[in-house]
């Protein structure tokens, strides 16, 4: 779910970059970057039993 939202935000940024105002695209890009960073931090403490 979290990754799907991130993909959708960047798809929306691409759509805005192609068809709309570039400022909207940059806003959506920034929103996507912040959201992706938040998801990254959420997973930073994941236990990874398959890794070791």
């Amino acid at each position: 779910m979290d990754s799907s939202i991130a993909f959708l935000i960047f798809a929306a940024a691409m759509w805005a970059a192609w068809l709309r105002d570039p400022r909207v695209a940059v806003f959506l890009f920034a929103l996507g970057m912040l959201f992706t960073l938040a998801v990254y931090l959420h997973h930073a403490t994941d236990v990874l039993p398959l890794s070791f």
Binding site: S3, A6, F7, F10, M14, A17, W18, T36, H43, D46
Partner: peptide
């Protein structure tokens, strides 16, 4: 999850080139 986030970052990479192609 980290693999998915790397894919997300690759899609984020595409926004700049699309802006360049359009504008």
């Amino acid at each position: 999850p980290l693999c998915l986030l790397q894919r997300v970052a690759f899609t984020a990479l595409a926004v700049g080139p699309i802006l360049t192609l359009r504008h």
